[in-house]
Amino acid sequence: MSQTNENTQPDYHVVHIHRDDFGSKMGLWLFLFTEILLFGGLFILYAAYRFIYPDGFAAAASELDVLLGAVNTVILLTSSLTVVLGIVALQKNNKKLSLFFLWVTVICGLLFLVNKYFEWGAKFHHGIYPKGPALQEMSEGETMYFGLYYVMTGLHALHIVVGLIFIGVVMWQIKKDVLTSTNFQRMENAGLYWHLVDIIWIFLFPLLYLIH
């Protein structure tokens, strides 16, 4: 009995905590599904209120700065590219280059947040925030729009922060040689998470900024 088992499954009883890159990636993909559904709830609300208040939404959307949104889109897309380049660099055993690309990613992420800060700041300055003086003067549709605008971009910004922390941990582990050219699954997971943050923005940008 032991012979047959040893022949078919030599690994199992030698090590208990075995590495399973595929399983790890699968777990992360499942987590990404949950993220999509989390934002999905907001997209449903957006669709419903856009249907109820088409005019209010058009009026409110025209108040957003398309240029600032476009710049942020370019920044995020670039960061998605660099995170992939970082993974490829690590796979090719170039630790230094990998860390360089990840630094670029982190800086892009921070730049995005800075832009967002100024964008929100300007809105607050004009009194456009929940219960703010300017927003209370506006129509119900515009109130709904800005309510959703703050929740959607705010939740997205929170995800950027989480993604940056994730990438920061990965960078630390690359530095300490925990993640190497043969063991890079966690880095790939961080990259996948970062792409999700990017993709959600790609939907938010046209919905909030471009459709008038």
Partner: peptide
């Protein structure tokens, strides 16, 4: 996995509604 996130965002919205009055 596929249903719980929807209640997650809904409950967050209730909290935000109570805290800031976002209106949704």
């Amino acid at each position: 996995i596929l249903a719980t996130p929807v209640i997650g965002i809904t409950l967050v919205l209730v909290i935000l509604e109570r805290a800031f009055g976002i209106g949704v």
